[in-house]
């Protein structure tokens, strides 16, 4: 056994760690609590507005996507925050790292487990959401056809087109991908924080703080770069916010997508790449903090 050359990177080991982390997280009560809450919200969005169909679809989309966003973000933070403390407390981390497992593989496996869970959750929520959208569209479609019976074909066409436009919109899919990437970023950042945090509560509190500041980062950055005057103290503060916090506002695209704004493929790709870069860099930071840590 020992004669075998040790491989410094093994997908097999990472897969084992990922699978185990996933199993661990699926057993979390908070996962079901959040998932059921999100699914209920998406299901209920159907009955929230009794207005025009445009408004109905807008509310349905806003509520569903809002539920997906809050669910994935919260789950990313809460689930990731307890991974390391729990392994340390139960000493399982000793048995894992006493095997020929490099610490970066351990971290990658943990993060990948969270990302797998988030991915499957968002797929489930998207499926429900799109199914609702489709069913509601079909219902309204037959209603519209009944109401417009006898009108000229081009008017019927216009009515149907307007209905289709306000229901499903292909731009929603890149929007959902961006929601997922935002959650991935948050998970990687949480993992990083948890490598030096004293408890998972500390990590969660810090992350909630980062979540809010991160949404204001762009504003701070603009004030800092625009030479608005102000004392050096204010400048330093703004610079710190801009440099140390992620720009989460860049990952909030669904709001405007629901309102009908189209996202050009190039822009979507750039935003998605930025999300992946953030996730990888925070994972790297987690490793820098963790690789020499005394356990």
């Amino acid at each position: 056994m020992a004669e075998l050359q040790h491989r410094s990177f093994s997908l097999g080991r990472i897969a084992a760690l990922t699978g185990n982390t996933f199993t661990e997280l699926v057993r979390l009560k908070v996962f079901y609590f959040l998932l059921i809450f999100a699914l209920l919200l998406i299901g209920n969005s159907l009955f929230m507005a009794r207005l025009s169909f445009q408004q109905e679809f807008q509310v349905l989309k806003d509520v569903s996507l809002g539920a997906m966003s809050i669910f994935t973000s919260l789950l990313a933070i809460v689930a990731t925050a307890q991974l390391l403390p729990r392994d340390l407390e139960d000493r399982t981390i000793y048995t894992i790292l006493a095997k020929p497992v490099p610490r970066y593989e351990y971290l990658i496996g943990k993060l990948a487990g969270v990302l797998l869970l988030l991915g499957l959750s968002i797929l489930a929520m998207s499926a429900l959401f799109l199914a609702l959208l489709f069913v509601r569209e079909q219902m309204l479609m037959s209603e519209t056809l009944r109401e417009t019976a006898g009108l000229r074909p081009e008017q019927v066409q216009a009515a149907i087109r307007s209905l289709e436009e306000s229901a499903f919109n292909a731009n929603l899919l890149p929007g959902i991908v961006i929601i997922y990437l935002k959650a991935a970023l948050l998970a990687a950042l949480t993992l990083f924080i948890s490598t030096f945090a004293s408890s998972n509560i500390f990590t969660i509190v810090v992350m909630v703080f980062i979540y809010f500041i991160g949404h204001l980062q762009a504003t701070a950055r603009e004030y800092w770069l625009q030479e608005h005057g102000g004392g050096w103290l204010a400048k330093t503060f703004l610079a710190l916010v801009a440099l140390a916090f992620p720009d989460l506002q860049l990952f909030n695209l669904v709001d405007d997508i629901v309102a009908g704004t189209a996202i050009p493929p190039g822009l979507f790709a750039q935003t998605a790449v930025l999300g992946c870069v953030y996730t990888s860099v925070y994972l790297f930071f987690a490793w820098v903090s963790f690789h020499g840590k005394a356990l």
């Binding site: 040790h6 410094s8 139960d90 006493a98």
Partner: peptide, 22 residues
């Protein structure tokens, strides 16, 4: 410090817990 050195060793920590759900 080499990860490969652990190919040849097995470890049982004090009062191990392991993953309860496995």
């Amino acid at each position: 410090r080499e990860v490969g050195s652990r190919e040849a060793v097995g470890f049982l920590p004090e009062n191990p817990y392991f993953y309860k759900y496995l």
